[in-house]
């Protein structure tokens, strides 16, 4: 059965009824791929693409609120460097028009570009169901390989992002565009000069490197401290060898990318 609610309340009502038997459909960039390959055949679809409020972007007191269906194309135009660059590194223009930030979070791919950028931004997610609304730091949202804190009746309705972080983003792949990352890195410096380092494709979920972050928060950003932080990053990540690259290479290149991004942030 295919449902096309026109507002969030209707969508939540449907989800509450159908739970796991109702699949949210927005960009389709994961779900429909699986369907095309015969690997998914949801019983019910709840199409979220006809809910205008889910595409909204608002700014309140220095915090950006992205509704769940904000697309990569929309995020590519935001003045938040790591998120914009991450979004523009996703697929081609067609995918960027389709794919949504909530979809990226909910899929919880270890290679999620948007997710990784949001992790570095200390983003929070708003999860809503007919039971109510809760707000969760993104770090607590990812539970494991393609596992999230999303309850069967919940929807990601909003993402909150600070606008006063200084950030950057880099991605490593085999070609110039449309890469699933071998490794992707987002870094940020908070107004309190704390550092955030998030990586994709180096663990079961996008992850933060807390030890390296703490070390830098304590010791400041210099060539030497960055060098030591890079060593820490290489120890904190646990990539696997797959058909994209070996674990050794991912560990190595993660360090290079983190170092380059931090050095360029310092220079800015």
């Amino acid at each position: 059965m295919f449902y096309q609610p026109k507002d969030i309340q209707k969508a939540l009502g449907l989800k509450a009824e159908l739970k796991e038997r109702g699949a949210f459909l927005a960009g389709g960039t994961d779900l429909v791929v699986l369907m095309n390959h015969g690997k998914a055949a949801p019983e019910n679809f709840i199409d979220l693409t006809h809910i205008p409020e889910l595409r909204a972007i608002h700014k309140h007191n220095g915090t950006l609120e992205l509704a769940g269906n904000v697309t990569y194309a929309q995020m590519g135009k935001l003045p938040i460097r790591c998120l914009a660059r991450a979004s523009l590194s996703v697929g081609g223009p067609g995918i960027r028009e389709l794919g949504t930030i909530a979809g990226n979070l909910a899929t919880a791919s270890p290679a999620g570009d948007g997710s990784t950028a949001l992790l570095a931004l200390d983003a929070e997610v708003e999860l809503t169901s007919v039971r109510g609304t809760r707000r969760l730091p993104l770090e607590e949202f990812f539970l494991g390989y393609r596992k999230t804190a999303l309850a069967p009746d919940e929807m990601i309705t909003k993402i909150f992002i600070p606008t006063n972080y200084q950030t950057d983003w880099a991605k490593n792949g085999k070609r110039g565009a449309m890469n699933i990352s071998i490794v992707a890195v987002a870094v940020a410096i908070t107004p309190k000069k704390e550092v955030r380092i998030a990586l994709a494709s180096v663990a079961a979920t996008p992850i933060r490197c807390y030890q390296a972050e703490k070390f830098l928060a304590k010791n400041g950003l210099t060539t030497e401290t960055i060098r030591q932080a890079v060593q820490s990053v290489r120890g904190e990540i646990k990539p696997i060898t797959d058909h994209r690259a070996s674990a050794d290479y991912k560990v190595h290149v993660s360090g290079v990318m983190v170092r380059r991004l931090l050095e360029s942030l310092v220079k800015q």
């Binding site: 390959h37 085999k174 070609r175 110039g176 565009a177 699933i180 058909h243 994209r244």
Partner: peptide
């Protein structure tokens, strides 16, 4: 970039997501 990866006689990258072709940027 292009390489068909085989494991146990099975192609591990039978789609364009992982069989990497040159784009206009390459």
């Amino acid at each position: 970039m292009e390489e068909v990866v085989m494991k146990d006689g099975k192609i591990m990258n039978p789609g364009f997501t992982d069989y990497i072709l040159p784009t206009i940027r390459d």
